[in-house]
């Protein structure tokens, strides 16, 4: 697999505060990564370092195979951090043409990318007249100009209204489906859960976990069941080696699996015991539950 970004023992100190502490991870091509962490966990600082705007204190990082300088490599990266930053007195097209000049891309890309983010109609409006959602979409168009190998987004839905959030997520999913590697920093767990395949979890500048979303937790998920006769259901499930702890929650029974098991298999098993289910859902713990679990363990 191709490595896009390699970070080794990266450290950044602001005075006495250590924002990034001996951080190491790699980003592989083709995955959608989420960098998770509470506010102040070093997400933005880490991105700032690899994007050439913050100076590292120690450690090293390199883009791709490490053969070119950071600013040359950045021409193959698309990134938006924090607010969309453009020249307010220029129109959308003029702003994007400037980015083309910096990245060394042909101007013809501008309209194509504006179409992706649905801004073609407003292409000759000045940036200062845009709403926040439009600014954010323009920033995504700008980051896509060079058909980047990786798209880095730092809190892309921050401050947007629900419609704007939905729009941005749609665009991100669309880009991801075309095979572009994405690195998404967010403190919104469900956002990461909805679009990411891999996560890097940061806390106080340290990496707690790097890997697939599924691999974060060794558990096999849990079942939520409902039946007309809940007591019979609970009795039927007890004693079976595949089922672990059970608990009643409202009018449902929650059962944790000890080993992998299909929902259909559970259904058949119970049917054989004469119990018909009115509700059966098999689900993994949400990222939020896993994240809290993981940060708790480290304390």
């Amino acid at each position: 697999m191709n490595t896009i970004l390699t970070i080794n023992n990266l450290t950044k100190r602001f005075g006495t505060l250590t924002a990034v502490d001996d951080l190491s991870f790699t980003i592989e091509k083709g995955n959608v990564y989420g960098i998770l962490g509470p506010n102040g966990s070093g997400k933005s600082t880490t991105l700032g370092i690899v994007l050439n705007v913050v100076n590292k204190t120690a450690g090293n990082f390199h883009w791709f195979d490490g053969s070119s300088t950071t600013h040359e490599a950045l021409k193959n990266v698309g990134a938006i951090i924090e607010h969309p930053n453009f020249y307010p007195y220029m129109t959308a097209v003029q702003n994007l043409e400037l980015v083309c000049k910096i990245k060394g891309v042909a101007k013809e890309k501008v309209e194509e990318k504006l179409a992706i983010v649905d801004l073609l109609e407003r292409k000759d409006s000045k940036f200062k007249e845009f709403s926040l959602g439009m600014k954010q979409r323009l920033a995504i168009a700008s980051a896509l100009l060079n058909d980047p190998e990786i798209l880095i987004l730092d809190e892309p839905t921050n401050g947007l209204d629900p419609q704007g959030i939905h729009q941005i997520r749609g665009i991100i999913k669309n880009i991801a489906s075309q095979g572009t590697t994405i690195l998404l920093a967010s403190h919104l767990l469900d956002e990461v859960e909805k679009v990411c395949t891999h996560v890097v979890i940061l806390r106080k500048g340290k990496s707690l976990y790097t890997g697939t979303v599924d691999g974060m937790n060794a558990s096999h998920g849990f079942l939520t069941l409902q039946s007309n006769d809940m007591n019979a259901l609970e009795a039927a499930m007890q004693g079976h080696p595949s089922f672990g702890t059970m608990k009643r929650e409202a009018d449902s029974l929650i059962v944790y699996l000890k080993e992998p098991m299909d929902a259909s298999e559970v259904n058949r098993l119970l049917f054989e015991k004469g119990i018909s289910l009115s509700h059966l859902v098999k689900r993994k713990e949400s990222l939020e539950e896993q994240f809290l679990e993981l940060t708790k363990k480290q304390n």
Partner: peptide
């Protein structure tokens, strides 16, 4: 100074311009 107040200096660097 506009590059600072518009924060475009940061964006320029991210886009691949060196300092």
């Amino acid at each position: 100074s506009n590059e600072y107040s518009f924060r475009t200096l940061k964006q320029n660097l991210i886009d691949g311009l060196s300092k």
